[in-house]
């Protein structure tokens, strides 16, 4: 047993698949009742970490405790205390809403006299009242996702692992889904949720940024924005963008294409905005407005992961 107030603790957690190190020496501490966002590009190691914490994959090295139980030594005890939504949609498509709920309720041995109440809760939470007898494959994406969440919480787990629960769901449904997550959190459920939508990070108490299997930063969204950028952020309207990124290399901490503009982190000891304009114009580029912007988490992430060379897989 580890710390009483910690729901999830990982120390030096690693997972190697043959020659590929999917998760590299990851440390994580999550308190009870926290909503923690696990953020990073595809292939960063988010799913692998979640699966290790659920006892679905064996760590190659390191330790993890979930709800106080060692995931390697006592995976069955862990399973009693967690709910999990895998990245793949994983309900039975050829069963109805009610049949799916009854199946998962039975697998988790939800007591008979409580079952009706919990099923009603799950149905109303998912907004599926009146659709209990519809086959799952006829439901739209957002409904399916909420039903999957409903199935994962039927047994009232104190800890929830959600692996990209909102991928492929339209924005309105995503927002509703996050409302549900916060409702659960306010009931004291600890939630570790992975996503590659940067905007969703803002909904979390804390976020863990992960890239190439490593934890690159962890903190509240506000903390990360202030702490990790290293300088002022300016938005530059100019063209051509690619050439501008190259031209700025060495003069600023960081330059990256952001939509149809350029975001650059100014080195406090380097050129300021006007000097940057000159520098670009000397190289024959058209430069429009240069203005200070407040950094988004995406800026922070880009800064942290690889000096801007990283592909823009985010958002």
């Amino acid at each position: 047993m580890s710390g009483e107030s910690k729901a999830i603790v990982a120390q030096g957690l690693s997972k190697r698949f043959q020659s590929f190190l999917a998760v590299d020496n990851l440390d994580l501490e999550i308190a009870k009742g926290e909503v923690v966002g696990f953020i990073g590009p595809n292939g960063a190691g988010k799913s692998t970490t979640l699966r290790m914490l659920c006892g679905l994959l064996r760590p190659s090295s390191g330790k993890a405790h979930v709800a106080g139980y060692d995931v390697e030594k006592d995976p069955e005890a862990v399973r009693e205390h967690i709910g999990y939504m895998s990245q793949k949609f994983s309900l039975y498509n050829d069963l109805t809403v009610r049949e799916n709920l009854r199946f998962f309720g039975g697998i988790y041995r939800v007591p008979k006299k409580e079952f009706a109440g919990r099923m009603n809760f799950a149905v109303s939470m998912a907004g599926l009242e009146g659709r209990e007898d519809m086959l799952v494959h006829t439901l739209a994406g957002g409904w399916k996702q909420r039903l999957a969440l409903g199935c994962a919480i039927l047994h009232r787990p104190p800890i929830l692992f959600l692996d990209e629960p909102t991928s492929g769901v339209e924005p309105e449904a995503r927002r509703r889904f996050w409302d549900l997550i916060h409702d659960l959190a306010s009931d004291g459920v600890t939630i570790l949720v992975s996503t590659h939508y940067m905007d969703e990070a803002e909904y979390c108490n804390r976020i863990a940024l992960i890239n190439r299997g490593r934890l690159v930063a962890m903190g509240s969204p506000g903390e990360l924005r202030l702490r990790d950028l290293g300088g002022k952020l300016v938005e530059i309207a100019c063209s051509p963008l690619g050439a501008a990124v190259n031209a700025l290399a060495g003069s600023v901490i960081e330059a990256a294409i952001f939509g149809d503009r350029l975001h650059a982190v100014l080195d406090p000891n380097g050129p300021d905005g006007e000097e940057i304009r000159k520098l670009l114009e000397e190289k024959g580029m058209n430069v429009g407005a240069i203005r200070m912007v407040s950094p988004s988490l995406e800026d922070v992430f880009v800064r942290l992961v690889s000096g801007g060379k990283e592909e823009r897989v985010l958002s």
Binding site: L56, Y84, S86, K88, S90, I107
Partner: peptide, 13 residues
């Protein structure tokens, strides 16, 4: 393949 097995594996069955 469908993914339901993963959901069953993570249960105490």
């Amino acid at each position: 393949e469908v993914g339901t097995l993963e959901q069953i594996m993570v249960s105490p069955i």
